[in-house]
Nucleic acid binder design. Structure first.
Length: 980
RNA sequence: GCCUUGGUGGCGGAACUGGUAGACGCGCUGGAUUCAAAAUCCAGUUCCUUCGGGAGUGAGGGUUCGAUUCCCUCCCAAGGUACCA
């Protein structure tokens, strides 16, 4: 009987679905294991072979854990809010919900084909109201919380209010806005309700603020920093400008330090941790306050080098700094204004691209050195960024290259404060290798001592303190989009009010148009029914807004990461309508044991999720403050593009203004011939082309009546038209694009050979391989094995369909091995092969080294085949070993072995060392570290006897050619090395 | 620039704590089977070679009896990040 994978795979997929084989229970005596793949955004293009890589890995591990006796949770869902469906809606008018539904159905079909052990009863969709009810709920929890720096955790806002009522805010240490006024209890209690709300908003973990945002006019929306790549939008590549808008923000900065510290206790890839560390950008230093001569105001700066305080020779403010207008002297005003205006006009992108040009203007004002009381000129310059630190720097040209360049350019003094260092050419930034000089009380101190001393002295005179600064900014949480979660918020007197949980979800309204309104409001501004009736507690028509009982609802929606920041916890209890999850569910599953997904989420999803998890932990909703213990980034599967090389002739009518086309033809040249022609003269190419032109036309060209154009070029060919030997299917290629129908082909050895290059998979490169065709031709088990066999999970690797025949024929061999199954005693060889395989596969799975276990299976089956093994005692455990990787064939073989139940819960075979014990070893005998021959010796032979046996061997004498060995190294059981 | 990861045959890639470099698969070569093809099976396949052997894991040094593995310098590629004070 042949290996009929189509029938087998369909049969078992149906069996698993009908029997709910992989449904996880929230109540079990078994230990729990939570394996999670990052849920996909269901795009219209469907899955390509790169997508399943991580899913297959998670699936193998899940199935393995199930064999190992764990209660496994392995869910799947969809991150189904997002821009593409909305843009499609703008173009076609089709509701994004319909587009999304269609795409999800296609994804589901493709996923089902691959035989994953997902518990589909737990599926979540972020765009589903029953799901986003809980996204809205979390938002409300964040609104009702503040961050107490004293307890170093988030607390309910009520604890803040009671402090205010008793003692005002003098002793409160909170993560809050910069502009909080100070007040005592009496003042607080005297505030109106709106005034109180206004102040509380400055403390809440999600708050409204006028923030400078990245506004993308083309998309009509705000983008987060991680949605911008090289100054343009990640999606679509549209320009982005800075703009002030009232936006919801998330006070993620409150968690900066804990997000940093938490990285130490999770097993995540180093590059990912480094990304997050850089993104958070902690720097330790001091804040220093400079008085301004003749002004009340002071300038506060942040510096990482307070030890260089005596090297300050000027200060630079960002052009946007609020003091600029105030301190500029009348003489300098015109110049300063012009500079500020010019800077404001330059886009963020220009400013980033141009880092070489030094520009700045003197304000005419002077600050005062906190210790020497010397005057320090205050400049403005666009190398200082308003958004980092305080938007002002104390410039120490001898110790910072940018300050140095600026000082040189404007002829500002560069005092040297480093002992024995030459600063005539460049600044000296190496802080560890010298001591401070010319610095009063810091003279002779090393960097670290000077640092401490400087901070202590600054504190003494009230001009500064030690400070830690973070690069991380609060996250803007508003988007001017339709297809996202609505905020559960309405406005009373301009103050945001939360809708009660019992009235959630607040569902997206229907709109006529998905674009921003004509007055520039977000798409929800198009809704006619978008007002909140506080009596009826429901959404009513906008016409009823009276600001007494009916109020306007928030028009922004939440960003893409809102729905994905707690989805992993929702899977634990996804149908719960009374809570985001029950305490029983979260206490049972705790956290994700294994999380697999792409590295592109390093500073987005994975940072925001950690932030929300820590918040949920503070509020006592979850037992762990990190949501995923281990994370693996699967590598990208790149495509192997195919290139065809061509020249073409365009024959044009001479002298006709429009250059009328008389004839045009493509001539495709096989790879090697093309390469050769690159080195030959143009003349040869023209001769080649001419040899393919109709003789009548040729005559007219020769007679100068027509013009001939012959460029040499290459273009992508669809990879499906090329076989494993890089040979192009010429006839299919002609059919592929109409313009190639009459093309000519210059072959080598009767074949047209294409060029190959590894590139990212993309439609436009015609190198996308989708899994459906492969499943159809070779089956899901082959695809699963092959994706794993390609190489290490974390490494990016090129897809090449050619190799799939290797794993496919392995499955056929495996199938054949089960043709006869007998109840007979296994041989010693059989047992050795089996147990060697158990050991290796178990180690490999634990190390996520799936590629090597596929090789191990191949070796095992090759060996058992040549041993003609038919013993059930061997074949039965082997089926279980294979089952996580190729589950369909394993199930089928399992049932042929006489089982009526699924293989899914069959216990993993136990490795027994005793079958691998050997009595002798084929020792590699090396000379000066190079293996020269092998010698079979008993394993229990003593070191001395081995040495004697080796030295007595004739090949040893041959190698030594009469020399005496200087030294003989014998490592019993491993190697013999002779030096001489 | 900085941070991270990597560099091994024609290709994808193996090699546990330093111990036989190139497992396994693809491709290629030859053979068997076949009227023929597909499929299948067998043998070979790092390079050079005067067939004795020699060289070899990006380059160059070092440690060691022994280095793909550890250390130093450099080169290249991919990813992240950047006037971050």
């Amino acid at each position: 009987m042949n290996y009929d994978f189509r029938e087998i795979e369909a049969k078992w997929q149906k069996y698993w679905a009908e029997n709910e084989t992989f449904k996880a229970s929230n109540d079990s005596d078994k230990p729990k294991f939570y394996a999670l793949s990052m849920f996909p955004y269901p795009s219209g293009a469907g899955l390509h072979v790169g997508h399943p890589l991580g899913y297959i890995a998670t699936d193998i591990y899940s199935r393995y854990k199930r064999h190992k006796g764990f209660n496994v949770l392995h869910p799947m869902g969809y991150d189904s809010f997002g821009l593409p469906a909305e843009q499609y809606a703008i173009q076609t008018g089709q509701h994004p919900a319909i587009t999304t539904e269609n795409n999800i159905n296609r994804y589901r079909e493709q996923l089902d084909q691959l035989g994953f052990s997902f518990d589909w009863s737990r599926e979540v969709r972020t765009s589903n109201p029953q799901y986003y009810k809980w996204t809205q709920w979390i938002f409300i929890q964040l609104f009702n919380a503040w961050y107490n720096k004293k307890s170093d955790k988030a607390e309910n806002i009520s604890s803040l209010i009671s402090i205010f009522e008793k003692e005002g805010n003098a002793n409160v240490e909170a993560a809050c806005d910069d502009d909080v006024p100070s007040f005592d209890a009496a003042t607080w209690n005297g505030y109106s309700d709106t005034e109180k709300q206004e102040i509380l908003l400055k403390y809440r973990l999600t708050y409204l603020a006028d923030t400078e945002v990245n506004w993308c006019p083309a998309l009509g929306t705000v983008l987060a920093n991680d949605e911008i790549v090289n100054g343009v939008s990640e999606r679509g590549g549209h320009p982005v400008v800075r703009k002030k808008m009232t936006q919801w923000s998330m006070r993620i900065t409150a968690y900066a330090q804990r997000l940093l510290d938490g990285l130490d206790k999770i097993d995540w890839p180093q590059p990912l941790k480094d990304s997050q560390t850089n993104w958070i950008g902690r720097s330790v230093g001091a804040s220093v306050t400079f008085n301004i001569k003749g002004e009340e105001d002071t300038i506060e700066v942040f510096t990482t080098r307070p030890d260089t305080i005596f090297g300050v020779s000027f200060m630079t403010l960002a052009p946007e700094h609020e003091l600029v207008a105030k301190i500029t002297t009348p003489e300098q005003k015109a110049e300063v204004d012009a500079y500020v205006e010019a800077t404001a006009k330059r886009s963020e992108r220009d400013r980033m691209a141009d880092v070489k040009t030094i520009s700045g203007v003197f304000t005419g004002a002077y600050a005062e050195h906190p210790f020497t009381k010397e005057p320090i000129p205050i400049w403005i310059g666009d190398y200082v960024l308003a958004s980092y630190g305080t938007g002002a720097v104390m410039a120490v040209p001898c110790g910072d290259q940018r300050d140095y360049d600026f000082a040189k350019h404007y002829n500002i003094d560069i005092p040297n404060i480093f002992e024995g260092v030459d600063i005539s050419e460049e600044a000296f930034a190496d802080k560890e290798t010298t001591v401070i000089a010319n610095s009063d009380f810091l003279n002779g101190l090393s960097y670290s001592d000077a640092m401490k001393k400087a901070i202590a002295e600054l504190e003494k005179i009230g001009h500064g303190e030690g400070k830690v600064n973070y690069r991380l900014r609060d996250a803007v949480f508003s988007r001017q989009r339709y297809w996202g979660e609505p905020f559960p918020v309405y406005y009373v007197d301009g103050m945001p009010q939360m809708i009660d949980l019992e009235h959630l979800p607040l569902q997206l309204p229907e709109v006529e148009k998905y674009l921003p309104t004509e007055t520039g409001e977000p798409p929800l501004g198009n809704a006619t029914e978008w007002a909140w009736d506080t009596d009826k507690n429901e959404v009513v028509s906008n016409d009823l807004i009276d600001h007494k009982t009916v109020f306007p609802l928030e028009l922004n929606t939440m960003p893409g990461w809102a729905g994905s920041s707690q989805y992993f916890n929702r899977y634990m209890d996804p149908r719960n309508d009374d809570a985001i999850f029950s305490p029983e569910a979260i206490n049972y599953w705790q956290d994700v044991d294994l999380y697999i997904g792409g590295s592109e989420h390093a500073t987005g999803h994975l940072l925001y999720s950690r932030f929300w998890q820590k918040f949920m932990f503070d509020m006592g909703y979850v037992p762990k403050d990190e949501f995923a213990q281990k994370l693996i980034n699967q590598g990208m599967i790149t495509g192997t593009s195919a290139f065809v090389y061509f020249t073409y002739y365009s024959v044009l009518e001479k002298g006709v203004t429009d250059e009328a086309l008389v004839d045009k033809k493509f001539i495709f040249i096989s790879k090697e011939l093309y390469k050769k022609s690159l080195y030959e003269s143009d003349n040869d190419l023209i001769l080649l082309v001419k040899s393919h032109i109709d003789s009548e036309l040729l005559n007219r060209i020769e007679n100068d009546e027509l013009i001939l154009i012959t460029p040499l070029n290459s273009v992508h060919a669809d990879v499906s038209l090329v076989n494993a030997s890089d040979e192009l299917d010429v006839e299919a290629f002609k059919q592929w694009q109409p313009e190639y129908k009459d093309a000519e082909f210059i072959l080598e050895d009767g074949k047209y050979i294409v060029g190959r290059e590894v590139e990212k998979m993309s439609k436009s490169k015609y190198n996308v391989v989708n899994p459906d065709a492969i499943c159809e031709e070779y089956g899901a088990d082959s695809l699963r094995l092959y994706e794993m066999f390609l190489g290490p999970l974390e490494q990016s690797k090129p897809w090449n369909t050619a190799g799939i025949t290797g794993v496919h024929s392995f499955l056929k061999k495996l199938w054949k091995l089960y043709a006869t199954i007998e109840d007979k005693e296994p041989t010693a060889d059989n047992l050795k092969t089996l147990h060697k395989t158990i050991k290796k596969v178990e180690e490999d799975v634990e190390n996520f080294s799936f590629n090597t276990s596929v090789s191990t299976f191949m070796i095992c089956v090759n060996e058992l085949t040549s041993q003609k093994c038919t013993s059930k005692a061997i074949l039965e455990p082997l089926a279980i070993l294979v089952s996580p990787y190729a589950p369909h064939i394993a199930e089928e073989l399992w049932s042929r072995l006489g089982h009526s139940e699924s293989i899914a819960e069959a216990p993993f075979p136990k490795f027994e060392e005793k079958y691998l014990v050997e009595s002798s070893k084929e020792y590699p005998i090396s000379f000066n570290g190079k293996m020269r021959f092998k010698l079979e010796l008993p394993l229990d032979m003593s070191k001395e006897d081995i040495e004697a046996a080796v030295l007595a061997h004739e090949k040893t004498k041959e190698q030594l050619q009469g020399r005496d060995p200087k030294k003989v190294i014998v490592v019993p059981g491993k190697i013999v090395n002779i030096v001489g």
